[in-house]
Design a protein around this nucleic acid. Sequence first.
DNA 1: GCGACAG
DNA 2: ATCTTGTCGC
Length: 225
Amino acid sequence: MTPDEAIAEQLRLAPSVVAETPADFAPRIAAGLDVAYLGDTGRLVAAVACVDIESGQVIDSALVTGTTDFPYVPGLFAYRELPSLIQALAAVTTTPDVLVCDGHGLAHPRRFGLACHLGVTTGIPTIGVGKNSMGDHEPPARQRGSWTALIDGTDEVGRALRTQDGVKPIFVSVGHRIDLDTATALVLRLSRKYRQPETTRAADQLCRQALKVAESHPTEREQRL
DNA sequence: GCGACAG
DNA sequence: ATCTTGTCGC
């Protein structure tokens, strides 16, 4: 698929995002998803970490190695990462109640970031969490839990959320089947001690760990060179 | 036209 | 994302 085709697909899928929380939503397990890359080889590692929301402990996880041919294009992360993330999700034995993804949801130029794509594809309530924003926002108050609106044009596409006192905010947006208030509250709850939620931290750690293993495991073709 | 631009 | 040591602070 070309970038132009990907953009067309995003525009086609964007209307299927549901920004409302199911009536029976009472999440017990949140899954964090992340990807790490091996240089510019196109090889990557995708991780899913299932976290018990109440205790904050990792109860299950999965790792997958894969490759990508799609280039890095801001706004088109899904076409780089989604296939591997779906595989990692399939490899986990636990069924998460909500996904917390590395990257924005509705806080996206076409209102269809990675978190929306992941949510619409899986049907699971999904939240987008980014470390950087594209939209405008006022800095939230210094205290943990304070937030300001994240604006793109005239739309409120997400929130700049302060997860720890005096720490740089993270950016929360709706992925699918959740509302912004619920998403914000859950991300804050998952961010117990650090800037990022435990879900993201756990998935990130798994990826880095796996990267080291992969580096010591050259591909067959690389061995012949 | 030019720069900026989630991971 | 990734390349990278020490260092300032709670």
